[in-house]
Design a protein around this nucleic acid. Structure first.
Lengths: 342, 342
DNA sequence: CCCCAGTTTGGAACCGGTTCCATCTACCAT
DNA sequence: ATGGTAGATGGAACCGGTTCCAAACTGGGG
């Protein structure tokens, strides 16, 4: 049997040097003579030696060269898109990515407690989840660098999305097209995960209405579990109102798909009869011509990693909040109010 | 400052026992008296002690409780869907998921060499990548359990997709609808990643043609980089042929989207003028009514994990190849040949 | 009362790295 | 020649667990 692997002592012996010297070569310490370095490298080559990351981690409390990502429902298109940005920038770094997917609030809590402890990752990017003060205190106690993406805490570096503005942009655009009966369809505002995005977009929606002297009609705000099917059902409820909306703003593009399906299955047209505007600008949105709010998902992932790497480099760097701007992407699912159908 | 953490020696001291005894308690060894166990557990509680997974891993070559996933372009919808299945079943196990995304052949090779070595994961699921004999030999030498999903090697457990049959099913369906000028649009057959899916679907496509006495026309086979935009371009080339196809089979649903865009931008209808059939049945496909081949992506992820866990449990389990069946999903993008347009 | 087997326990050695101190050279300035 | 200094090197100690051998304790049988 081939032996499992050779150790640094084997290399030292073969090269005729001490283990400290081999370690120095591995870590590119400058104080090794060229000749010695050559011998050591030759021995490494000969034995096909590779240092054990585990041992390296144990001594020196060194780097694990891994970054954790705690993310809820990572397969949702918007999260995948951010994930893609994260992966793309991590691949150019020496860090691996450990994925912690969260599907229940209990699981979130368990991860917030377990991950700092295990020391399996050098830092954690938390996406769209709001850690409590106790969680943040624990991160600090275990000396774990944390960066928040699409979440906020005063003591942690964060990238937040300008969701209030996004809600306002979408709503104002519909108002500018002449709509006044504008519905907002979102995830549950009081989700147990403490997602905030839907609530913040709601704020922007309400502000835009107020700014234009349109009263907020609670019947026009539907909320329910995320997803296309649930959105379809909620949209049907909206359309069955005595005074159905002429435009619907959904808290995500995925929900917009369900909304459009529901409208069409009523025999109505988008945008002829009902305008629809989504949120996220996921990959598929350009294909179906969805008017939506773009929040630079991919770019956000990249910036999240950049913040993490900076944090790892200088742990005492200033805690900053970066706000990611949003913008309106005009395509074909929102149109001027059609007077005939009112 | 709160101290970072206490060690097993602190616990031993507080409990007034030896470190070996503490270790025994942690590992639920039966040879510890009830009284001693109680004392040790009390000390653990008092110090809020938690064993370091790194140290545990180093000694005893123990479990890292992590499983690696090596996957190319993991953000492609089909891979995400499998990933979702993998995550869903891993969350009910004690294992973490370490994601290794591959974007270049060099990176693939680097991972095949590095991952076994690092011992950061207890096992690896390799998706859609074909390891060489040397790679497989290395896995064995480092004693790393590997399971292949959508890939094959005689010495490794694998889940393979019945792609030849998938290609045949799609093509036969189009033939049954009366089409004879049927194109096949795929990824590069000789991709540097040694993906095989496109090639196997091509085989099925050719077999179906042969079975029905239709000669294979090389002009009808277009290949190029994966993606919607490239597919759109290749489709335009197909439609510009002197004798354009009346039906197009694409190697993925994502490519089908590009194909449909190209057809429509020529002012033609799907399926009125040109029928389209995709492959994968990704989430969005039902939304756009795409006729396609389903390969149970989510389910495949689950089965991949199941095979991995079994492997971890009994390393010498028989090496088996499971073939994942495929099925035709009829929706609205393929229709009987319209005699008028031929 | 002694001996032996079985149970429980302590602690040294080990896993494979890093770190740091002591030592050894080589070379230059005085 | 002599001392001083910087650079290169060896190797013991250490990181925090596990493992295993030896020793202590226990109780039953002769």
């Amino acid at each position: 049997m081939a032996k499992n692997s050779s150790t640094i002592r084997d290399v030292a012996e073969l090269a005729g040097v001490g283990v400290g010297t081999v370690s120095r070569v591995l870590n590119e310490s400058p104080s090794v003579s060229a000749e010695t370095r050559r011998k050591v490298l030759a021995a490494i080559e000969e034995l096909n030696y590779r240092p054990s990351s585990v041992a390296r981690l144990l001594s020196s409390g060194g780097k694990s060269l891994a970054i954790g990502l705690i993310v809820p429902f990572f397969t949702r298109p918007a999260f995948v898109e951010r994930l893609r940005g994260i992966e793309a920038s991590l691949v150019n770094s020496p860090y691996n990515l450990v994925l912690y997917n969260v599907e229940t609030p209990e699981h979130q809590q368990e991860l917030f407690e377990r991950v700092p402890y295990e020391q399996r990752v050098d830092g954690v990017i938390v996406m769209s989840l709001y850690p409590s003060d106790a969680d943040v205190e624990r991160f600090a106690r275990y000396n774990l660098p944390v960066v928040l993406v699409d979440a906020y805490h005063p003591q942690l570096p964060s990238l937040t999305i300008d969701d209030i503005n996004g809600g306002r942009l979408a709503t104002q655009y519909l108002i500018d097209l002449g709509h006044t009966r504008i519905a907002y369809l979102s995830d549950d505002i009081d989700s147990p995960f403490r997602f905030r995005a839907s609530a913040r977009r709601l704020q922007g929606y309400q502000q835009a209405l107020t700014d234009n002297g349109i009263p907020f009609n609670p019947e026009y705000h539907k909320q329910g579990e995320h997803g296309r099917y649930r959105a379809r059902h909620l949209t049907t409820e909206l359309l069955d109102l005595d005074d159905p909306p002429t435009a619907i703003f959904t808290a995500s593009d995925t929900q917009a798909l369900g909304t459009i399906e529901a409208i069409r299955s009523k025999g109505l047209n988008v945008p002829g009869d009902v305008s629809v505007i989504g949120y996220d600008d996921i990959t598929i949105s350009s294909y179906i011509g969805l008017t939506t709010i773009s929040q630079s998902l991919y770019e956000t992932g990249i910036r999240g990693v950049r913040a993490m790497l900076k944090r790892l480099d200088q742990k005492n760097a200033e805690v900053t909040e970066q706000v990611i701007p949003v913008s309106l992407v005009v395509r074909e699912t929102a149109a001027p109010l059609n007077a005939a159908t009112v």
